[in-house]
Nucleic acid binder design. Structure first.
Lengths: 364, 364
DNA sequence: TTGTATGCGTTATCAT
DNA sequence: ATGATAACGCATACAA
């Protein structure tokens, strides 16, 4: 159906290789023949087949952004969507096409749903990346982790500084606002990000001689998931003490509606905290709505903070004090870092950590 | 570096073609040899090169989602992100990989940034799709339009029913609420969706014997872009009369902050409308915030409605009366429809139009 | 400057 | 059931 290089060659009265050169090394051709070839190319609107080029060149010009998440939304989330935009912007600059992977099933990536061996590199977002990384290493495909870390060799990492971000929130709450009784709300602590935010919460309290809000309602209501910190992460940061230092509220889901429902059943708490620090903006919004329905004023009765600075945070009432995470930039940096590993597979492990910025609004 | 099929063949003591069969037609092999081959495959974790497969099979198992937008966000938007999720979910079911394209420059798609000729089909979201479609047709690549229409042959279309959605809003406002003085706010009317919503606004007023709110402030403030309806679209729907029937407010950008600023400079209007119908939720939120700052109560003083039902619409105060558009579903339908054209390039033009659902909340 | 020959990693056709 | 061989569409080393 479509034209091939040999067709063009015949029509132009030259060899196939000459047509090939017309595309990759036009300067090596005589002006006259180049023009003759190109006029035919234009006439038939011919373009070389990218796949055939890739296999002949042994260079695919293809990178992948792989997302392993429990469930939807994948790219539809306010976090990964912009990250993808950032990733794509840099990929285009470097001449890569991008093929996408998103799944709720870990092994999907190396089974049916993946363009095996045919990519130059991949960015991976996953809660439990090490097994995946190992497979990729085995096949010589460079990889960079998105918002996660690993101790494996030769892998790039791009993260945001969750620990410091939450530290800033806590200092704002304690030092500037003078709050002492501060609770922590999170969905399951399975991802490093949530864990890091929790670590900062605990450490900040300790540094100020305060003790964490203890969830006395836990056995009574049983609304929330188990408090089940990821042991690998605890070990990596030598944080074996954390589980015994207070208890966070762990809601059953991070979505505002679900949080709102959980919180509604929880209220009123026997002992209301003065401030509620949430692991994400979505959680904070759910918490706020439940609080507001029960007549609590924010921040006069209870202060609430979020994390991520999603668009909604600015437009919610009250607007949310939160920490801005630039996921677009993280996506862009991921691609830039990936390029280093594509160019030099021996590049040592390197972590780029973007600073998160405290945004003080009305809710605190 | 990576294993090739010939390596596996040597190790297993069989011909290359036998290894190939082990993957594509395992039933044709003797159990014994299949097992011998597969054990070696497992040992070296070998996988066939997808690109080489594609070129040998003349079937790429690759589809593309192409997005042509003025500027960012592309996939990071609350509309296209979920659409991508829907598209990917169906693509995976059908065994396609998906390669992405997003650009602010129309010609990018057929110049450098595109994996020429190497895809089985593409979904295209663009305000001005016809020139792009023509190029794809020429190369025999089937295409379906996302949220747009065309009169060209053999192309699929997936749209939402903007006209009826806005009709529902207008009926709600006029018949149930009894509002008569209703203004229309939009960003530039360059996309069919905005146009359709505007058509419905005008038609609903006419059907109820009302006249559209006329923007008397226009020459005075000059905040907004020109009212510049796309002539192609006007012609397609035989709507040449529309431009002379009242004037919509056209804000300089669809982003809430920009809308808020524009609106702030506009207020107070000499003659306040009783209701403001906005072309999108983002615009509605900007309008609401400006209104609230100037002391207007919503909906007691002015009612405001949106369109799209983005997540924020439900959590904004007041929660927004709007129309739910299921962009995830639209993405999914796009891929399903695309498959028809991949299987049968002669499939006639077909438009799948998803119904939009009115969601009544507090703002009206 | 251009042509020839060979290779890229796989599939498919035709033998055996 | 398996093997040899010719595609697939293009790139490149080498020869001319």
């Amino acid at each position: 159906m479509a034209m091939r290089m040999s067709d063009i060659a015949k029509l132009a009265g030259v060899a196939e290789s000459t047509v090939s050169r017309a595309f990759s090394h036009p300067e090596k051709l005589r002006k006259e023949t180049l023009e003759r070839i190109m006029s035919i190319v234009r006439m038939y609107d011919y373009r070389p087949n990218a796949m055939a080029q890739a296999i002949a060149r042994r260079h695919y010009a293809l990178v992948s952004f792989l997302l392993y998440n429990k469930s939807r939304p994948f790219w539809g989330s306010t976090f990964y969507g912009p990250a993808l935009d950032g990733f794509m912007e840099r990929a285009k600059v470097r001449g890569h096409h991008v093929v996408l992977g998103a799944t709720g099933i870990q092994n999907d990536f190396f089974e049916e749903s993946f363009i095996n061996d045919s990519i130059d590199g991949a960015v991976l977002a996953s809660r439990d990346p090490d097994p995946i990384i190992k497979v990729f290493k085995k096949r010589g495909i460079p990889i960079v982790l998105f918002q996660n870390e690993t101790s494996l060799e030769n892998v790039g990492m791009v993260t945001n500084d969750d620990y410091n971000g939450m530290m800033q929130i806590m200092k704002h709450l304690i030092e500037e606002k003078g709050y002492e009784d501060i609770a922590f709300f999170s969905n399951r602590l399975s991802h490093v990000s949530n864990m890091q935010r929790y670590f900062a919460y605990v450490d900040a309290l300790r540094q100020h001689g305060l003790r964490p809000y203890t969830n006395e309602e836990l056995p009574e209501y049983k609304l929330y998931s188990t408090y089940d910190p990821n042991p690998t992460i605890l070990a990596r940061y030598e944080r074996k003490d954390i589980p015994r230092f207070g208890t966070p509220f762990v809601v059953t889901s991070g979505r505002p509606n679900r949080v709102e429902n959980d919180m509604l059943k929880l209220l009123p708490l026997r002992k209301m905290p003065r401030a509620i620090v949430c692991a994400t903006d979505s959680i904070a919004i759910g918490v706020c709505r439940a609080l507001q329905q029960k007549g609590f004023r924010i921040p006069q009765d209870v202060a609430v903070t979020g994390y991520d600075d999603m668009e909604m945070a600015a437009f919610f009432t009250p607007s949310l004090t939160t920490v801005h995470v630039d996921s677009f930039q993280m996506g862009a940096e991921s691609m830039d870092l990936l390029q280093k590993y594509i160019d030099d597979p021996e590049h040592p492990s390197q972590c780029i950590c973007l600073a998160d910025e405290l945004v003080i609004r009305e809710s605190s």
